[in-house]
């Protein structure tokens, strides 16, 4: 019998979707004799959150302590060690998220757990754990094996597995004792800062003209703006453009920016890293313009033009203006 554990991720009173994605995958990996475990760390006021995940796990192991109210990796790591000594799990899944990336590598190092990150698929064969992850801007996949060990650790890419239809099993909840032991004052959560509200809300736009690294310079943004104006749309961007401050952060589409679902999304010079795709794959129609025929954006776009965006843009803007008279 094997046991697969999922670390529950929650923030601001909500279970993060990655939790259900991992629980779903854990059930898929588990055989009929196997056990899916949910590991929950939080304070007593968050007990109601446990009720949302415990029906989806055979066992939920929970630590409640005031010190665990907000995510802090030193405390969470210490409490997780206490849980793991009770959990007896063979494989632990955490999210490759701001939460998991701040915790998993330290835990792997501390507990000498075989570990790989940001996986998009998992296989368990004859007790061996194999994972698929992406490298080189998402252009290459790697099959990675984890060596034999009592416990192994994977962080899972958000969106890699569906969050819907996670099996329901009659789950019991067990509380695990843990007390603050160690110098945790060296890292202290202070507050959250909500995303800035800009002059334009890109999540409300029906048509987005979105620019990426391929726009090359802040001076070229107006060329995209002209097309957006002609279409009655709004200009948004991918991460590199916001990083370079060519457009404000609130125009950024993707995991760390906004999630958009416009009628039409035009991606100009955007390679289409998964973090970007996560924010726009729900668009009804995706049109991509990129010089690189192997850019990942073409795998999710409905229509594509493999060409220089600086040639396509003026030609397209001109045609739209002609049409509108």
């Amino acid at each position: 019998m094997k046991k697969i554990a999922v670390l529950v991720e929650h923030r601001q009173g909500e279970i993060r979707e990655i939790t259900f994605e991992m629980l779903g995958k854990a059930h898929q990996l588990a055989g009929s004799d196997d056990e899916v475990q949910a590991l929950f760390l939080g304070d007593t006021s968050q007990k109601e959150l446990v009720a949302k995940v415990s029906p989806h796990a055979h066992t939920t192991l929970a630590v409640y302590d005031a010190a665990l109210k907000d995510f802090e990796p030193l405390r969470y790591g210490s409490a997780l060690e206490a849980v793991l000594s009770n959990a007896d799990c063979d494989l632990l899944l955490m999210g490759q998220t701001a939460f998991g990336m701040d915790l998993a590598p330290a835990l792997a190092a501390k507990m000498t757990m075989p570990f790989t990150s940001d996986v998009v698929d998992i296989e368990i064969l004859d007790g061996g754990v194999k994972a698929t992850r992406q490298m080189y801007s998402g252009k290459v996949s790697a099959a990675v094996s984890l060596k034999e060990a009592p416990k192994r650790l994977l962080t899972v890419r958000a969106g890699a597995f569906p969050a819907e239809d996670v099996p329901e099993v009659s789950g019991e909840v067990r509380e695990i004792a843990w007390s603050v032991d160690g110098d945790f004052a060296v890292r202290k959560f202070l507050s959250y800062i909500e995303a800035a509200v800009g002059d334009v809300d890109i999540t409300q736009a029906d048509v987005l003209v979105s620019v990426g690294r391929g726009i090359k310079d802040a001076d070229n943004i107006p060329v995209a703006q002209e097309l957006a104006d002609a279409l009655g749309g709004v200009v948004s961007c991918s991460r590199p453009v916001a990083d370079k401050k060519w457009l404000p952060k609130e125009r950024q589409v993707g995991t760390s920016g906004k999630t958009v679902k416009p009628r039409v999304y035009i991606a100009l010079g955007i390679s289409g890293a998964f973090q970007h795709q996560a924010g726009m794959k729900g668009a009804a129609t995706i049109i991509a313009v990129n010089k690189d025929p192997k850019a990942p954006i073409f795998s999710i776009a409905h229509f594509g033009i493999v060409d220089d965006l600086f040639k396509v843009l003026p030609a397209l803007t001109e045609k739209v203006r002609e049409l509108k008279g």
Partner: peptide, 8 residues
């Protein structure tokens, strides 16, 4: 995620 930041 989603434009949220944490102060630590």
């Amino acid at each position: 995620e989603g434009g949220l930041e944490e102060v630590t």
